[in-house]
Design a protein around this nucleic acid. Structure first.
Length: 113
DNA sequence: TATGTGACATCAA
DNA sequence: CTTGATGCCACAT
């Protein structure tokens, strides 16, 4: 695979990982940050998502916080968009929280290999 | 250069 | 259970 990260690694790494999230699965900011080596850098992952609206191939709706809460939904076009996208993939969302989150959680450090 | 903010996570009280 | 504080890194002003 071609490495697009030369200097600003974090952002591009985040994009790379997020774009690899399988259909119908979700992951967390912390999991990504942890995979990148800094477990406490989850905020930067969030920042990357914030800038991802200009980056294609980044399904930011598949990234939620550690409890499966759609904290970033308000940053989408509409409030319902994030939920709609997830539900259209088979991910059930109730009260802005992913149902069976544990079940569909996708951990890059475990499954990306 | 310094300060503040943020789609988070974790711990202490 | 809730609230507050701290760490982390990039970006905006």
């Amino acid at each position: 695979m071609t490495n697009i990260f030369n200097k600003s690694d974090f952002f591009n790494k985040v994009y790379s990982i997020v774009s690899k999230i399988p259909y119908g699965r979700v992951t967390t900011y912390g999991a990504i940050a942890n995979y990148l080596g800094s477990k406490k850098s989850a905020r930067v992952v969030g920042w990357a998502m914030n800038a991802s609206h200009i980056t294609e191939g980044v399904p930011a709706h598949r990234v939620v916080n550690r409890i499966g809460l759609l904290t970033g939904k308000k940053h989408f076009f509409g409030i319902n968009l994030m939920k709609q996208l997830l539900e259209s993939e088979g991910v059930k969302v109730e009260n802005d929280q992913v149902v069976n989150f544990k079940n569909i959680f996708w951990d890059p450090s475990l499954e990306l290999q």
